[in-house]
Design a protein around this nucleic acid. Structure first.
Length: 264
DNA sequence: AACCGTATCAACCGCTTCGCA
DNA sequence: GTGCGAAGCGGTTGATACGGT
């Protein structure tokens, strides 16, 4: 007997959410929370599956989300954490208040990954591309390994390099972790009592957003309204971008080796 | 102005994990 | 200990926007 699908797909809507659907979902969740995602769409009057509702809420409608580009600090943190955790986007997202795993994953794939490749760094292993068979041309000079450029001395580096040859995704030992390690659970548990201030392990705690602190009840604006307030929304929620620090400076302390102008 | 290629990101799909009976 | 259902997670896709020719 096969596994029951997450929802009865017959008659359910797919694709982009409309402002009306957003309004229904947010209104329902703010009022009732969710005991069970499967019943949320039915009770909220939506022709969506619960999974879709949960995704829409966590990735787009959650009140404590930041919008807009990642700051330099956030990008650097993503790189650091990815070097430690690999593609564990939810764990990485747990360390970035107001960011979702989907958002970070997308940003990694579209921005950071590309940039690292351009710099000659394998975005998977965080090691120089073709390190096993280094190209004759040494300009720009091969950067240190991602996990070593901050943390490891030579002996540890060589040992770790051997281990990374075995497993593509670098996993470091606990004693090597310098950044804040992920919490035991990165899950957001949105109970009815806490739905207004979802108890995400780090994001809500860090942002400390209470319902009354919502910048604007976006579900009252309609999608056009949401879009129209985009800049204001960003201004209110995005951490003031960067400290003038290019996150990739960690790889190339002297930026002369690559085209910084390509970085947005 | 029209076309084409590329970039971006919201959303979906399927697998894994977790909790409970 | 086992099986089932729900939730979570990561990979992938598809629609749209944007820039160049």
């Amino acid at each position: 007997m096969g596994r029951q699908p997450c929802c009865d797909k017959v008659g359910l809507k797919k694709g982009p959410w409309t402002a009306e659907e957003d309004q229904k979902l947010v209104g329902f969740l703010l009022t009732h929370g969710h005991y069970c995602w499967r019943v949320v769409p039915k009770l909220a009057g939506l022709l969506r599956c619960g999974k879709s509702c949960r995704l829409r809420w966590t990735n787009y409608l959650r009140p404590d989300l930041k919008r807009g580009l990642l700051s330099d600090e956030e990008q650097q943190l993503v790189i650091d954490l990815h070097a430690q955790l690999g593609n564990r986007w939810s764990k990485i997202a747990a360390q970035l208040p107001g960011r979702t795993d989907n958002e970070i994953k997308n940003h990694w794939n579209t921005h950071i990954k590309k940039k690292l490749r351009k710099m000659g760094i394998d975005p998977v292993t965080h090691r120089p591309l073709g390190q096993e068979a280094p190209p004759p041309l040494q300009h720009p000079p091969p950067p240190p390994t991602a996990t070593s450029w901050q943390q490891l001395d030579g002996a540890e580096r060589s040992q770790q390099a051997e281990e990374e040859d075995v497993k593509a995704v670098p996993l470091i030992q606990p004693h090597e972790v310098t950044a804040v390690p992920p919490t035991a659970s990165s899950n957001c548990s949105v109970s009815p009592a806490s739905v207004i201030s979802p108890s995400c392990s780090s994001s809500s705690a860090a942002s400390g957003l209470e319902a009354a602190e919502w910048p604007e009840p976006m579900y009252l604006l309609g999608m056009d309204g949401i879009m129209d307030v985009g800049s204001g929304w960003d201004a209110g929620f995005v951490v003031p971008g960067g400290l003038g620090v290019d996150p990739f400076d960690h790889y190339y302390p002297d930026p002369a080796g690559f085209d910084q102008g390509a970085w947005p």
